[in-house]
Design a binder for these strands. Structure first.
Lengths: 207, 207
DNA sequence: ACCGGCCTGGAATCGACGTTCCAACGTATT
DNA sequence: AATACGTTGGAACGTCGATTCCAGGCCGGT
């Protein structure tokens, strides 16, 4: 076919993710995207239509490549409490180690910014929250079946409790909280809902 | 004196706080401020110098008027765990009730936005974090003296744990978490660090 | 080698924003 | 009542953003 694309749009989306993540959605200009992708404005607009749609694609890509891997191992419940501890271990590692340490969570940042009120953005983020909540709920259910949980705590309240910790980590990891403190805090938090006598591991190991 | 101001700058700052809080720092334009204050650009610039400095003043005002009242009762330690529970009760109420319900926390939003990297902003927010952490630490210390705390948890890790909950509430209150879930989650979180046998109240009552 | 289409690069457009400027105004003093 | 000085309102300025336009280029099919 004549006039086929000279580049892979998927690569362009990949290149945009760290821009939004590090500098922010509104703060990232088209020029930044041009520089990062090596493409021209024309090619970007011909391919993605607008900065908004490209940013939406990048947000979805971020969730798929950076958040889902942390959450997905919980789907189905895993082995209960230790799986939940491992989830937090992966989260803390993702937020505090490697090249993207202290970048925080793009989804949380977008949520708290003006973009969070955009209908498309809100839908994407709501779906992600729902997924995370379900995964935690399943894991708590499994933990209950395995007798790892105190019986005097409400499941939904505990889901909320774990979501609070998750978002807390997303925020605190950006402003100086160290890995050790976060891990100890999570271990204390999970020990708190563990059944007396259970020996289920609650230490948030980074995988 | 000839040519005295025809308005009170303090009132102008008060009028700017809800703009930044609801729409965001970068998203609030000078025109929005002109409309909200009823003042002209000239008066604003003559008084505050720049949008940046006016925004800084509004951020300080927000912390003084809306955050300090929630935190300050903890200074000195209060009566330990019940004071901490009351702190969370005030926080949840502030975030979920009244005209500013679901507005989230301006400080957290600014922290996660690009403005969070501005030196002046960073300094203001760091001081606030330090104040909150100290207040929680003092209250935990008092709780320990009163025998309300489990002895197998590290104090600093517990401070971090409470900060995670605080920031979690600031985020989650903005996207659909209801008062009851948040309160139950906090009650569970505080019961978790309470000494076995202690009858200290952990329910986050909104005052 | 030719052709025709879409892709490409860079310049041009259009609007919004922060900031500045200036003439007119109001007030406390004389 | 006249004066003097800072404040005030609104227009004007320059910058930078996203988006669009157009001439030129590249490639597959013939």
């Amino acid at each position: 076919m004549p006039g086929s694309k000279h580049f892979d749009p998927e690569d362009a989306i990949d290149a945009v993710v760290p821009l939004l993540w590090r500098r922010g959605w509104a703060e990232t200009g088209i020029q930044d995207i041009v520089d990062a992708t090596g493409l021209s404005r024309s090619s970007l607009y011909a391919t993605f239509g607008s900065k908004h749609q490209l940013s939406l694609a990048a947000l979805r890509r971020y969730l798929r490549d950076y958040v889902d891997p942390v959450v997905t191992a919980l789907d189905g419940g895993g082995d209960g409490l230790p799986s939940i501890a491992a989830f937090f271990g992966r989260l803390i590692k993702a937020r505090c180690w490697g090249a993207r340490a202290r970048w925080g969570c793009l989804a949380t940042a977008v949520q708290l910014s003006a973009q969070g009120e955009d209908p498309d953005v809100a839908e994407i983020l709501a779906a992600q929250r729902k997924h995370t909540a379900k995964a935690l709920r399943d894991a708590l259910g499994r933990a209950g079946e395995l007798g790892q949980l105190r019986t005097d705590v409400d499941t939904e309240a505990t889901v909320e409790y774990l979501l609070l910790l998750t978002q807390g980590i997303n925020v605190r990891s950006r402003d100086g909280a160290d890995v050790k403190s976060l891990r100890q805090a999570v271990a204390a938090a999970l020990s708190a809902i563990r059944a007396p006598g259970s020996d289920a591991d609650t230490w948030p190991q980074g995988k």
